[in-house]
């Protein structure tokens, strides 16, 4: 495993921890999109079907369990926790799941490396992960006050994707036959979705003002 991949995984882990910190400690999920969190839970559930059949490494297994466990517990907190759920911006978080899930499922059935259940599900999870941030970005744009933790959460998620691209470039030049068009293109699309957010994030950081996205 190269440094970019490891840094990417750690950034991803940090994003989840920041979100759990906000939810668990502050007992608030204000500004967090439940739709995006549900999509991530679906992404991990469909991607990690190999959890009990293919052993890669202890690291790999542990990280899969952490991402599965954290994504489902975040969804549980926002939906059912009696204090946390009160802060959920339900009226603002109106993105429809099936607008994203159905096209991704169709695309995975049409474009995949191998037409097997597991491979189609894996491909579906890649496509869905690429667009799963959209409800969150829409909510950020609608929310007047983006608190620090929410801003950092989205920034860390974007950084994780950017580091994965560096990881692929590194692997392409260091490993023989390392070519994965589906992973790369969906990963690139996913990272590009953060471009706008990154721009405003750095602007607010540079000028030392509160993060706010233009309507």
């Amino acid at each position: 495993m190269n440094i970019f991949r490891f840094a990417g995984d750690m950034t991803h882990l940090a994003s989840v921890l920041v979100l759990l910190l906000k939810i668990h400690t502050i007992k608030s999920c204000a500004g967090i999109s439940l739709k995006t969190q549900e999509l991530y839970a679906l992404v991990f559930a469909t991607r990690y079907l190999d959890l009990f059949t293919d052993y890669i490494s202890l690291y790999n297994t542990l990280m899969k369990l952490i991402f599965l466990g954290s994504s489902f517990s975040i969804v549980w907190y926002i939906r059912y926790h009696k204090i946390v759920r009160r802060s959920y911006d339900k009226d603002q978080d109106t993105f429809r799941h099936y607008f994203l899930v159905l096209p991704c499922l169709l695309l995975a059935l049409l474009i995949n490396e191998k037409f097997t259940f597991r491979e189609v599900m894996w491909t579906f999870s890649l496509y869905l992960e690429a667009v799963a941030i959209l409800p969150q970005l829409v909510l950020l744009q609608r929310t007047r006050n983006i608190d620090n933790l929410t801003g950092q959460y989205v920034f860390l998620l974007g950084a994780y994707r950017a580091l994965y691209i560096l990881n692929w470039i590194y692997r392409y030049f260091t490993e023989p036959h390392y070519v994965h068009w589906i992973t790369w293109i969906s990963g690139l699309v996913q990272t590009l979705l953060y471009a706008d957010f990154f721009y405003y994030y750095f602007q607010s950081w540079k000028n030392n003002v509160k993060l706010e996205l233009p309507a």
Partner: peptide, 10 residues
């Protein structure tokens, strides 16, 4: 082999 190597990422 291509598919297996792809699945070592998270």
């Amino acid at each position: 082999a291509a598919i297996v190597s792809q699945h070592d990422e998270l």
